[in-house]
Nucleic acid binder design. Sequence first.
DNA 1: CGGCATCCTCCCCGATACTG
DNA 2: CAGTATCGGGGAGGATGCCG
Lengths: 120, 120
Amino acid sequence: MHAPDPYLALCPTRVVLDRIADKWTVLLLTAVAERPMRFNALRRRVEGVSQKVLSQTLKSLERDGLVTRSVFPTVPVTVEYALTPLGASLERTLAPLAQWSRENIDAIAEAQALYDARGP
Amino acid sequence: MHAPDPYLALCPTRVVLDRIADKWTVLLLTAVAERPMRFNALRRRVEGVSQKVLSQTLKSLERDGLVTRSVFPTVPVTVEYALTPLGASLERTLAPLAQWSRENIDAIAEAQALYDARGP
DNA sequence: CGGCATCCTCCCCGATACTG
DNA sequence: CAGTATCGGGGAGGATGCCG
């Protein structure tokens, strides 16, 4: 055996990336990190997510042990989503990306403009 | 005006996430970070990527100013991909994720097993 | 070697309607 | 309020073939 190779399909990095590298997972993770939130609050907070996909993504996050889903027997029922310690630690390692995005979005836009100006 | 809101569609974080949160971008970024690599070397290094998608993804990365594409007029032609400084800085902010994956893949698998055992 | 063109398939996701 | 059920279109991406 050798050390896990990030580029073979079954190594931890690949597995985790396959799980979180989609349109909404990271965004929801950071949204719930702000504060525990209810379903429709998340729906409003994260602009553009459909109710179906929100439901699916939250279920995946819950299954992976990254968020908790707490049901309160009010009428109507109240459901609150919050980060687990595991989810919180993932969110912390992802947080620098938001910082990087703010700092470098202009450089990216510039590179794109340059690239597009070159070749038709 | 207020500070950019990560959950509105047009904020930097959303834009960057939409660009890199796909099946292959992050993986290719870290692969090229190891050392500059040629097309087919990347193809072999990153198990499972098709030639078409590799080509597309590299083009996007080049357009965003994250990798360079250098053509050497040998016969047959040699093409080498390498990180730009911008790409290198992004790769550095993404690197902790690989570390986190190795450390927590077991906890995730455990959570999944627990979740699956509960409800049919 | 490093691609592009084409075809085709799958499944992601949005829209809509309904429920406890 | 917090979902599930169902349908359907579109796009990502795999397979194959060809080219400079």
